[in-house]
């Protein structure tokens, strides 16, 4: 083997990407940075605010202390209401999303029209934030927990429906085939062939959404949807930081607790 052949066979340079690939990669990086810089530039951020941000933050934290512990008693009722809104909203969601999911899954829907309607409802529901749904329902029902419950449900239907519909589309078709082969009716196939396969997903997703809804319902009060958000909003606007501190702590506890409950139930289901 000559030296040349040797060099050709065992080159001294090894690159993971060829030049073209590298070029594309760097183009992506530059593109990302460009978009970010352009966005920040367009936002016309008053950077001067950052100069005293730490002072403001410290000031805010200091003014939260000492917390007004007695205020806890006043927080309990709104907190319970918050949990109720989340739970009832999730219950409404369950009732509506359950049939909707079957309508929106390709393999269980009745025809193309029902599939399209199902998908349309799910997409609309998902595209609008809970708080925005809150604005809408407060305009309809007036301020209060009813608007909150419907806002929670309106947003969660899309979440639950989409995940369950996907689970239905991914079931083992063999089982369905076997149930069909026994001469079962369509309803029986759904009940015995499809439902047992997706039931854990349905319960798991519902519980998971409940836990998200607890968090969502803490802010529904900002737009008049009931719950702790109402007093939190007014306390913040009155700069009553000692009360705000208490409320933030109690929200923290409730959310962490609900997350724990939800995780425990989901573990138990599967």
């Amino acid at each position: 083997m000559t030296l040349e052949e040797h060099a050709k066979r065992y080159p001294e340079v090894w690159r993971k990407f060829n030049p073209r690939q590298s070029l594309i990669r760097y183009a992506w990086y530059i593109g990302i940075v460009f978009v970010a810089v352009w966005s920040i530039h367009q936002l016309e951020i008053p950077w001067i605010y950052f100069l005293d941000a730490h002072v403001q933050t410290a000031d805010l934290l200091v003014r939260m202390f000492p917390p007004d512990w007695w205020f806890f008693l006043e927080v309990i009722d709104p907190l319970v209401e918050t949990i109720h809104i989340a739970t009832l909203g999730t219950a409404v969601t369950f009732v509506i999303a359950f049939p909707l999911a079957f309508l929106s899954a390709r393999n269980t829907t009745l025809n193309n029209a029902t599939w399209f309607i199902g998908r349309f409802i799910l997409v609309t529901s998902r595209s609008v934030n809970t708080v925005v749904w809150g604005l809408l329902f407060v305009a309809i029902f007036g301020p209060g927990p009813i608007a909150g419950i419907w806002a929670i449900a309106a947003r969660s239907i899309g979440f639950l429906g989409k995940l369950v519909a996907e689970a239905i589309e991914e079931i083992d078709e063999g089982t369905v085939e076997a149930i069909e082969a026994t001469g079962a009716s369509r309803l029986q196939v759904l009940w015995l062939g499809v439902l047992p396969q997706v039931l854990p997903v349905i319960w798991g997703t519902t519980v998971y959404r409940w836990d998200i809804n607890i968090r969502e319902s803490t802010v529904l009060g900002f737009v008049g949807g009931g719950g702790i958000g109402i007093i939190l909003y007014s306390s913040i606007n009155q700069f009553a930081w000692r009360e705000v501190g208490i409320m933030l702590i109690s929200i923290l506890m409730v959310v962490i607790l609900s997350e724990f409950i939800s995780a425990t139930i989901r573990k138990w289901i599967s």
């Binding site: 063999g174 089982t175 149930i179 082969a181 001469g183 015995l192 062939g193």
Partner: peptide
């Protein structure tokens, strides 16, 4: 007619969770 024909599958196709 299907009631009168029993079928057995390669992958068993049982309802696993029942």
């Amino acid at each position: 007619a299907r009631r009168r024909m029993g079928m057995i599958f390669q992958e068993y196709n049982l309802v696993e969770r029942l």
